[in-house]
Design a protein around this nucleic acid. Structure first.
Length: 260
DNA sequence: ATTGTGGCCTGCCCGC
DNA sequence: TGCGGGCAGGCCACAA
């Protein structure tokens, strides 16, 4: 599924449309337009404008227009970005490898040719005009130790749940969170506020390092732990049977041996 | 405020 | 062979 790493890949693909002018918009799915947006409103806002920048905060991709408005794209679990018919990620975990034009929920066509499409079978993503960035927490790739301490606070909620709370920490999804907790040797179900200074430092280092590494490798699914995120697997580190639980309402895999 | 739960979306896979 | 149920998880609404 697209997490921060995949959205960063989409952002780089979106570089291709910088400087292009929007000639037309196809928004056939009203459900996909969020925040009270209509097909007419988004068309009026985009046609004639040029794309002057692309940014990312957590899992939110933003395309800046030349009139100071911003288009926000959220990809949910199965959304892919297609630019001029090219995808940046062919295989997306938990999504289908197929491509159907019927799954094109939103398209911008550009003057002089080419287009940008959001292709999303499950329709869990959405399009925003001037998305509210205040609803998102700290960007995970630049997270500081002090910020991580604020994310966790003195909370009694499960560590994993807090790390996945996009209003506190933007970017980590289910796969990445299991990966960093595996690497940091921390139990996902531990109260978030129960980490020692040493553990917090370690977790911070692991988050930063893991994101940098997996961005280089090219996806959330390239993590060391992902082979073990299946029922009946054994821990790649120590061979113990991997435990599957539901934590914070999400399927959670961890090693009872070295994650404490 | 904090925390937990259930629902939505749809493709796919398993078992009957 | 077809079909129903369960599962995947990001996000949101809602309740206590």
């Amino acid at each position: 599924m697209p997490e921060l790493i995949e959205i960063e890949s989409y952002r780089r693909l979106a570089d291709e449309v910088l400087g292009r002018q929007v000639a037309g918009v196809d928004a056939p799915d009203a459900w996909y337009l969020k925040g009270g947006l209509t097909a007419t409103a988004i068309t009026d806002a985009l046609v004639g404008r040029s794309i002057v920048g692309d940014r990312r905060l957590g899992k939110l991709l933003m395309l800046d227009l030349d009139d100071d408005h911003t288009l926000g794209l959220r990809f949910g679990m199965t959304g892919r970005l297609v630019v001029d018919g090219l995808v940046s990620i062919e295989r997306l975990e938990y999504s289908t490898a197929r491509h159907e034009r019927a799954w094109d929920r939103f398209t911008m066509r550009f003057a002089g040719g080419g287009d940008l499409r959001m292709r999303d079978p499950r329709r869990l993503g959405g399009v925003f005009l001037d998305p509210d960035m205040d609803r998102l927490g700290f960007e995970a790739t630049t997270l500081t130790r002090r910020q991580l301490a604020r994310v966790l606070g003195t909370s009694m909620a499960p560590l994993k749940t807090r790390l996945m709370d996009q209003s506190r920490l933007a970017g980590l999804g289910n796969l990445l969170t299991d990966e960093v907790l595996f690497r940091a040797g921390l139990d996902p179900a531990r109260p978030a506020g129960s980490l020692s200074d040493t553990e917090l430092r370690r977790l911070h280092r692991v988050i930063r390092r893991t994101l940098a590494e997996l961005i280089d490798r090219g996806g959330s699914h390239t993590g060391d732990f992902q082979i073990a995120r299946v029922p009946g697997a054994t821990c790649p580190r120590d061979g113990a049977p991997i435990q599957r639980r539901v934590v914070g309402g999400r399927a959670t895999y961890s090693c009872p041996e070295h994650q404490a």
